[in-house]
Nucleic acid binder design. Structure first.
Lengths: 234, 234
DNA sequence: CCAAAAGTGTTCTCCATACACCCATGC
DNA sequence: GCATGGGTGTATGGAGAACACTTTTGG
């Protein structure tokens, strides 16, 4: 190979902050490490980048290996390069964040993880939960800030819900993520006026009160609107 | 060192997209490479990350070495990890973008750069300018999109102007970056109502018409407003 | 019939927009 | 005195915010 660069190189990893919504709470997926360093600690799923895969491929592979998750909304978050962030030596980590609907998902730990589990984000941040390995608490902070920012001007929140959802579920998603209450009538008016939801004939099942109408996010419609200058907002 | 990871590692670089405003045009700072590969081509300033420096330090160091620039607003942009983006072998690059006021700046190429020069962004994108090395055109695209997005909801535009500026300069900055015209009266009303500009006693010098009042961005005021929930917008 | 959530309209306020003329200065 | 940009106010429309009651359903 010509012009090869021969100086020492930092190691390169990816880490994934996977958010999910469960019981009206925002949760994050953690694994219990089965390898040193931080063996037995909880950490974000992630690992080393191979020479023949892109960063995103590495993130997806590690997620699959350590938690069993596949096919999710994934976006690059930030790259963390503090010199001492890994006791094994210089390691730079490209962080991704992902949104999934945990309902009905099977977690399946393997590889370097003893188990994978959902933790309420508030527990970790409030330190009533486990302390995370490496600088993963900091990565979580950055991811949370990004999620809060992004959810307001891009319709990514839908990734956290089932395909079919009620407007109340959607509203409560926003209330959870943004940590503030929204007015029911105004919220509905706003969302319906955007014309990016498909009103289904179906309704909620098995609830002990009037069953709510179900909706689906109309992605292709959204894309078309985008091209003509529409911007989703709150 | 315990637990050292011994698999092959991608090389790690940083690249910087430095934007400047000159003659009412948005420009980007490029260097002419003096090393293979792409010797003689124009490229973003950047280079390999050393083992004992953070990513931001690496970006600042490379900028200083290749262009002579120091002390600028710098922010991480995105990390590019396509497998084949560098002919020397697998190389991942963490891109940063920077904003400076080019007026009166001395560029001073050295190290791996033959020269450093400002190019109109439109030229590069319209391919009437030079083709850039590696995937640097793509990096420039991403940086431009980010700049356009960010300038609207964070007061970073001021970095592109001298410390003291007129409202017309500020407006024309926004018009240039956002590529659309703004109404003078509404623009002034909006900005002045934010209370983040300090009205100076001084005025423009040496203009062949009524001299405009100069303003300064009040950063500490802005920070205070931020904490109390204020958000800069457009 | 009671509990629990679904669903729905109107008013008011504020902010974004559109728009045109006089002012100060240098030459 | 004329060319050049600096500087200013007002009217209108539309969107966000505030706000409470009726409807449906299951138990």
């Amino acid at each position: 190979m010509p012009y090869t660069y021969e100086y020492p190189r930092p190691a390169l990893t990816v880490d994934c902050v996977v958010f999910g919504l469960e019981a009206g709470e925002l949760k994050v997926l953690l694994i219990e490490r089965d390898l040193e360093p931080f063996k037995g600690s909880w950490a974000l799923p992630g690992g080393f980048v191979n020479m023949d895969e892109t960063l995103e491929q590495a993130a997806l592979r590690e997620l699959q290996e350590e938690t069993g998750l596949r096919d999710l909304y994934l976006e690059q978050l930030y790259t963390f390069g503090q010199v001492d962030r890994d006791p094994r030596g210089r390691t730079v980590s490209v962080a991704y964040y992902a949104l999934v609907n945990p309902k009905g998902l099977m977690l399946h730990a393997s590889s370097d993880a003893r188990q994978a589990r959902w933790f309420p984000v508030s527990q970790i941040r409030g330190s009533s939960g486990p302390r995370l390995a490496f600088d993963h608490e900091k990565i979580l902070e950055v991811a949370l800030r990004r999620l809060r920012g992004k959810v307001r001007y891009e319709p990514i929140g839908f990734e956290l819900l089932p395909t079919k959802f009620t407007l109340t579920q959607l509203q409560s998603l926003y209330e959870t993520v943004l940590e503030r209450e929204l007015d029911k009538r105004n919220f509905r008016k706003k969302l319906l006026s955007m014309k990016i939801l498909i009103e289904l004939e179906e309704r909620q099942q098995d609830v002990a009160h009037r069953a709510a109408r179900l909706y689906r996010f109309d992605e292709s419609r959204y894309r078309r609107l985008m091209r003509s200058g529409f911007v989703f907002e709150l």
